[in-house]
Simulated assay, not measured.
Amino acid sequence: MGMDVTAERLIPLPPERVAAYAMDWRHDAEWTQGIRVAELTREAEGGGFGVGAEVTRTAYFLGRRIDYVLRVAAHEPPRLLDMVSVAGPMPMHVTYTFDPDPGGGTLARIRVRGDASGLYGLAAPLMARKVRSSLVKDLRDLELRLGKPQG
């Protein structure tokens, strides 16, 4: 069963600031639901983080520990970070986009596509709902971490 879930949030800060934080794997565990540890396990061609780099995440989802590796497929800060799983319990494709909003803020969007069929034997709609609620919280926590009170 294919899963395709997107969440978005308008964050009242410029894209450069939002993306600088959100695209930095060192912050993954601070704002992404379930992630306990994230580490850069392979550097990009030119060193550091970029296309070809791999981040290994240890997460807890529905009470189970999951280890997975995401490879950077596209890295165009501050607009786009696209990652594809190369190891883990299910094929997954994670896309972050940060578009400038006319009002001066950032439209932050996270899209997760994957094949959840073999993972938990869960109905895909249930899995999609769990993922969507996680993404909504991620974006809310991202805004909170960036320190702008909601007015």
Rank of each mutant, 00 (worst) to 15 (best):
S133C: 08
A128D: 12
D115E: 11
P100V: 01
A22C: 09
R129M: 14
A124V: 13
R9S: 10
L80P: 02
K130I: 11
G151E: 07
S85K: 04
T106K: 00
D82M: 01
G151H: 04
V51D: 03
R113G: 11
E30I: 04
G88K: 02
L107M: 13
V69H: 01
D28E: 13
L139Y: 00
V69N: 06
R64Y: 06
L13E: 04
A53D: 03
E39C: 07
W31T: 05
S117V: 04
S133T: 14
E76A: 07
E43R: 11
A19T: 04
M127G: 07
R42N: 10
A116L: 08
M92H: 08
G88Q: 01
E43V: 04
K148L: 11
M127L: 15
H27R: 09
Y120S: 05
L144A: 15
I11C: 05
G88W: 00
P78M: 06
L126I: 15
A73Q: 10
I66K: 01
A116V: 14
T56A: 08
G121S: 11
P125C: 07
E43M: 09
E43L: 09
F61M: 04
L122E: 06
D141A: 14
W31A: 05
Q33K: 01
L10M: 07
T6P: 03
V69A: 06
K130E: 02
A124H: 03
A22E: 02
L146D: 07
P89Q: 06
M23E: 06
A53C: 09
A19I: 01
E143N: 05
V136E: 13
G118M: 05
G151L: 11
D141S: 14
V72P: 00
R64N: 08
G52Q: 03
V55A: 12
E54V: 15
D24S: 13
D28P: 04
R26W: 07
M127A: 14
R79I: 02
I66M: 15
A116Y: 02
A29W: 01
D24A: 14
P77H: 07
